[in-house]
């Protein structure tokens, strides 16, 4: 069980949205994490974009450290440490977001408010497949 947190989740979501708006205001770019990471991997199509992308990723990596320093609170973090599960999950997510041109941030956070049909369909698709996968793992195989 995890605790239902409507207020902190709404507030945290608004911060995520604000970060996406600032990236559009200053850089004119969509805050899609898979696109940003993909742009850092060689071969580089556009080297001018490399600097801010690396800086953005460093910001993401450091955010939990800052949070803990500022608030003094620990961050709940429960992850499977199963080698096979995490390697297959990583490969499938990487392949999927690459082929599908985006993930929860690019399609969900940035695409839905633009009323992009591709992003709306993509978000419905990955959420449905995520729900089906967890159902099979927890209630069919594990049940």
């Amino acid at each position: 069980m995890t605790e239902f947190t409507p207020f902190s989740s709404l507030f945290g979501g608004a911060l995520i949205g604000l970060a996406a708006v600032l990236l559009m205001l200053f850089h004119g770019r969509i805050a899609g994490i898979s696109g940003i990471i993909s742009g850092i991997l060689p071969p580089w199509v556009n080297k001018d974009e490399l600097g801010w992308r690396i800086a953005f990723v460093i910001g993401l990596v450091l955010a939990p450290v800052f949070y803990q320093t500022l608030t003094g609170q620990s961050i709940k973090h429960v992850v499977s440490n199963d080698l096979g599960i995490m390697i297959s999950a990583g490969l499938i997510v990487g392949l999927g977001v690459g082929l599908g041109s985006g993930c929860t941030s690019g399609h969900g956070v940035c695409g839905i408010p633009r009323l992009s049909m591709r992003s709306i369909i993509a978000t419905i698709t990955f959420m449905s497949f995520g729900i089906m996968t967890v159902y099979i793992i927890r209630h069919v195989i594990g049940g």
Binding site: S88, I92, G96, L99, C103, F129, I131, I137
Partner: peptide, 15 residues
């Protein structure tokens, strides 16, 4: 787009 989003959902549900 559909294949990619579907695969992403599966990997998301696994990990």
């Amino acid at each position: 787009l559909l294949l990619g989003a579907g695969l992403f959902g599966i990997g998301w549900g696994i990990g």
